[in-house]
Design a binder for these strands. Structure first.
Length: 749
RNA sequence: GAGUGGUUAACUCAAUUGGUAGAGUGUUUCGCUUACAACGAAACGGUUAGUGGUUCGAGUCCGCUACUACUUACCA
């Protein structure tokens, strides 16, 4: 991190201190008594299944009463630090004691008996000793009830004089535990001692039991400073993708806790606080030691202070206390002359770069740092720039292995990307990942997806190779023109879909639309339809149009497959070196004719039906067949007759108005199709009939359900026109199909 | 414990304001047909976890149950 960034972090600390957001407060930390160091949560290890320990029940006398309370504890050595006994206020056994005073064993200090919901009714004795200095939960109870904090344990794990028992002072806490159990027993205060499995933390470094310990830390008061950041997301001023994270964000911001920004680490931004005495307020906050000295002289009233009398805080700042300034600091927003230290704001109009880029469009990051980083950047953005730092936040999924474990270096379950790239190609790996990355959902990594990506690039390559090797002749072809027309309409339809997906950050969906455009529309239909006979040239009009289409498709693919699309872009046509697809203009959506696309669906349905009929009858795919159609509207089939014949390998298409006997019959939509066959192939009429009967029953059932719905007065009244119309169409289709099937069955005899 | 998601085909996931569930992979059948067998053509495959409710209509909204993931605390 560079010097300017460092200065920015310090400046912000000082600014927040002056604004009154920063304060010093107590916080429970994990303390390793042997290494004499604080540990982060990650450095504390919990043994699986817990550890063997004892739970001791101890009698405590109640002042001015013959009654006693029995408390349960695993750590009797902390008894002298107790400052209250808590019971659940709804506990019938104990609630009458609330408000009385109990006496701490041995030292007879008076402590209050309080009521707190935290206490479980059915754990231990129902009475909880509260030791705010040595237990995180007790500390919180102490906060709620304003309890005294008595820290009886030294940094090295020995007891100090605050425990008030001279024999205990200076001895290790675990020695004292044994000793105190003896002493309690001798004093007849020990009621019970039973084995207990506990989950205690041990230091990763020294394996000693971690001691929860209160220590003075630096905090940012989050309540006021985070208000705008909370609101901005709730009001959709900043959009989270997927939006489900809005709930999570809301919950966190509503219950925002003060941010402890000091850390006990050996590296980081050192806290710019300088102490000149032992008192609670004997410190100053300043950017440098020199400034600190001046301030300290003033604050202490001691003009004789020297630099040696000042001691800078040993702690450093939490790493997020620097990262949260990233959107501004990256443009030197906190550097002179852009930052006004008096107002604590970035001066509007003083920084061209910042003005231009801020707020940025989209932040892409992981959901696990939504609060650590994202929320805090938003807070800092409003605090220092007076505006949101970005408009959208795209939260990616976390890549997991097949056992749903997070991919991580320490587990070693992350595949080497270079190996993957070697195997599947960079585009293949990239596309593979994108196939399955719905925003915010975890992604189970599977090499099969990379393989699919690889195959996709091979498909593109082969399609290109085919187009490129074609020889051309001057001329045109009416059927090809129909195909080109259709594809261009279809292209715009897909482009519209893709744009919609992109606008909603649905990257996998956008990719899937393009993938299908390439496989289904471009490769399976367009290329097959314009394909000239073997080794024959193609007419130039069609060729040129196809090249244009290919170029458009490359543009669409480029964000997903940057390498192969660029390569093909340069191979498909002679170009200057700087004429690259990456800087080419993204295709603009043009109007598309829905009717043409629908017509074409009828065509592909028919082609599929013929292929299907061949398949089921075991007729070879390249044996030309005669097709007879019995349909109400033959215009579409007329128009596309040439293309249908080519795709379905037909020698002729004829129209008829009656059942054709001695033929393979099947339906395509509501159209009846017949392929007459000679005596060479015998049709198994019983099987055929059975199949038709089955279909007939299904159609009748379907019609029945549609009729039921349409017969429902409330449906007809309440449902939108569009939905009703759809139902009517279903009805008509089903009726037509039933009629046709019945006729077919009849014709079979 | 609390909070927030999730549970849809064999697997991985979609389904944008409630309008009758789609892809990919896998499987099966047929086919080396002229760019592609690292392929093509086609088929099979779902009481949307369970349960109750609201609605003409529920994968979608609400209640409960079970399981699961994440975040955060962890039991004197």
């Amino acid at each position: 991190m560079d010097d300017e960034y460092y200065k920015a972090v310090i400046k912000v600390f000082i600014d927040l201190y002056h604004k009154g957001y920063i304060y010093r407060g107590l916080r429970m930390i994990n303390w390793d008594c042997e290494a004499k160091t604080a540990l982060s949560n990650e450095e504390v290890i919990y043994r699986e299944g817990g550890e063997n320990s004892f739970l001791y029940s101890v009698k405590c006398a109640i002042k001015d009463s013959d009654e006693q309370v029995i408390i349960a504890t695993q750590r009797p050595e902390t008894i002298m630090g107790d400052t209250a006994i808590a019971v659940n206020p709804s506990d019938e056994r104990h609630k009458h004691l609330i408000g009385k005073k109990a006496l701490v064993p041995f030292i007879n200090r008076e402590i209050p008996i309080i009521g707190d919901d935290y206490v479980e009714l059915d754990f231990g004795t129902g009475c909880l000793k509260v030791t705010p200095a040595h237990d995180p939960n007790d500390y919180e109870i102490g906060q709620r009830h304003n309890l005294e904090v008595i820290d009886t344990i030294n940094l090295d794990g020995t007891l100090n004089e605050k425990c008030e028992v001279p024999e205990y002072v200076g001895r290790d806490r675990f020695d004292i535990r044994k000793q105190i159990v003896k002493d309690l027993r001798a004093a007849e205060l020990l009621v019970e001692e039973k084995p207990f499995i506990t989950r205690i933390g041990r230091s990763e470094r020294t394996n000693t039991v971690v001691e929860p310990k209160l220590s003075l830390q630096w905090f940012i008061n989050m309540k006021d400073i985070s208000r705008k950041a909370h609101q901005a997301v709730m009001d959709d001023e900043i959009l989270l993708y997927p939006s489900k994270f809005k709930n999570t964000y809301n919950h966190w911001m509503e219950n925002v806790r003060d941010w402890c920004i000091s850390r006990q680490l050996w590296w980081g931004h050192r806290i710019p606080a300088y102490y000149f005495g032992e008192g609670e307020n004997d410190f100053v906050v300043a950017a440098s030691a020199e400034e600190a000295l001046e301030l300290a002289k003033k604050k202490s009233g001691n003009a004789a202070l020297t630099a040696r009398d000042l001691k800078q805080d040993e702690d450093v700042l939490d790493t997020w206390a620097s990262s949260w300034l990233w959107p501004e600091a990256v443009f030197d927003g906190f550097k002179e002359p852009h930052f006004d230290e008096k107002t604590g704001k970035i001066i509007e109009g003083s920084n061209a770069e910042l003005d231009y880029f801020y707020p940025t469009d989209t932040l892409v990051t992981a959901p696990e740092i939504l609060f650590f980083w994202v929320a805090r950047m938003i807070i800092a953005g409003y605090e220092y720039k007076g505006e949101k730092p970005f408009k959208n936040v795209y939260l990616t999924g976390i890549v997991r292995d097949k056992q749903r474990r997070k991919m991580s270096k320490s587990l070693g379950n992350s595949p080497d990307p270079l190996d993957l790239i070697k195997q599947y190609g960079a585009d293949g790996v990239r596309t593979g990942m994108l196939f399955s990355s719905p925003a915010g959902n975890d992604l189970l990594f599977d090499e099969k997806l990379c393989d699919q990506g690889k195959k996709f690039s091979i498909k593109l390559w082969n399609a290109f190779r085919f187009i490129k090797q074609l020889k051309t002749f001057e001329g045109s072809n009416a059927d090809s023109q129909l195909a080109i027309d259709w594809f261009n309409n279809r292209f715009n339809q897909v482009l519209t879909e893709v744009e919609d997906h992109f606008s909603k950050f649905r990257l996998s969906d956008a990719l899937m639309s393009i993938y299908k455009l390439v496989y289904d529309d471009l490769a399976s239909y367009l290329i097959e339809m314009i394909k000239p006979a073997y080794e024959q040239p193609i007419d130039r009009t069609t060729y040129d149009a196809t090249i244009l289409i290919f170029e458009k498709v490359m543009k669409l693919i480029h964000p997903f497959m940057p390498f192969i699309s660029e390569e093909l872009w340069h191979k498909i046509r002679e170009r200057a070196d700087n004429d690259c697809v990456i800087v080419s203009e993204w295709p603009a959506i043009e109007n598309f004719d829905k009717e043409i696309i629908e017509e074409f669906e009828t065509v592909t349905n028919l082609v599929t039906a013929v292929r299907n009929a061949r398949n089921s009858k075991g007729i070879s795919g390249n044996e030309p067949l005669n097709l007879l159609l019995k349909c109400s509207d033959k215009s579409v089939f007329d128009k596309y007759q040439g293309l249908i014949s080519k795709m379905a390998v037909l020698s002729s298409i004829e129209f008829t108005d009656k059942i054709v006997p001695n033929s393979i019959s099947f339906m395509s939509g509501t159209n009846e199709c017949f392929i007459p066959i000679g005596d060479a192939v015998k049709i198994d009429t019983t099987e055929e009939k059975a199949n038709l009967q089955k279909d007939l029953e299904y159609q009748k059932g379907f019609l029945n359900s549609v009729m039921k719905k349409l017969g429902n007065e409330r449906f007809v009244q309440n449902a939108p026109e569009k939905v009703i119309e759809m139902e009517r169409k279903k009805q008509a289709d089903a009726e037509a199909k039933i009629k046709a099937i019945e006729a077919s069955i009849k014709s079979l005899g």
